[in-house]
């Protein structure tokens, strides 16, 4: 259970989000227009930015968690890869996901290495294992980011615009993997893509004018969509299946 209590996020003096009160018990997609503050909410949930109010995860205040405990609880998958080390291989990068489990000053254990290989295989990346990350396509990089996040074995996974930089084919692949993860993880999906959210199938929070509105499955009814977007759902559908 993730609880947001009177959450307020600012960038300098500009208020991005305020009075956010949500109880997230299951999978959640956070929708909203570009610039509405979806990513800000995701970044607050991952403790990447400071916020006022409270974020409580399974009864514990997010700010009270140590870096390692937090990493073992929440994994955040950014929209795209940032990297300075141009020689790091896919395998080495995925292994970084095990950092919170690694003994200080020592190398990654054989268990860490097995787990990294397991997720590389799961996401179908074995043939790229020894390739440098920067030589991969955006789709392959997105899958690598997912593999590294999966290695963290955290209960909650936050995906921030996972398909924003991908072509339709890779978007489908990534979308399917995320849907599969619903069985093992609590998924929080940040997207402006209604169809991705509908395909993943989760509760919806819609962000508009600094506030978040919570919807269950009734979000995808024509009534709600017409109210929010001014058009019906069917007129917007792109098939992911």
């Amino acid at each position: 259970m993730i609880e947001l209590k009177n959450l307020r996020c600012r960038y300098d003096k500009t208020i991005i989000l305020q009075d956010i009160n949500l109880k997230i018990a299951s999978h959640l997609s956070i929708l909203g227009a570009n610039g509405s503050g979806k990513s800000t909410l995701a970044r607050a949930l991952s403790a990447l930015i400071d916020y006022d109010g409270e974020i409580v995860i399974d009864g514990a205040d997010l700010k009270s968690l140590s870096n390692k405990t937090r990493a073992k609880t929440i994994a955040y998958v950014p929209p795209k890869l940032e990297l300075y080390d141009s020689f790091i291989t896919l395998y080495e990068f995925v292994l970084l996901g095990r950092f919170a489990y690694k003994k200080s000053f020592f190398d990654y254990s054989s268990e860490d290495r097995e787990i990294a290989d397991k997720y590389i295989k799961l996401l179908g990346l074995e043939h790229l294992r020894g390739h440098t990350l920067l030589s991969l396509s955006s789709g392959e990089q997105q899958l690598s980011l997912m593999a590294a996040a999966l290695c963290m074995q955290s209960r909650i996974m936050i995906f921030d615009e996972p398909t924003a930089n991908l072509d339709p084919l890779n978007s489908k692949i990534v979308a399917k993997y995320i849907k599969n993860l619903k069985r093992t993880h609590q998924i929080i999906l940040i997207t402006h893509d209604l169809h991705l959210a509908s395909f993943i199938g989760s509760d919806i929070a819609f962000i508009k004018e600094q506030h978040a509105e919570f919807y269950g499955s009734e979000f995808f009814s024509d009534k709600v969509l017409e109210e929010l977007y001014g058009v019906s759902f069917n007129s917007l559908v792109i098939e992911y299946e």
Binding site: A71, A75, F99, A100
Partner: peptide, 19 residues
């Protein structure tokens, strides 16, 4: 290994559990 992690980005290093 901390250095290797920091060579991704400061944010990514923090997300993976590094101060």
């Amino acid at each position: 290994f901390e250095l290797q992690l920091l060579a991704t980005s400061e944010e990514s290093a923090k997300l993976k559990g590094l101060d």
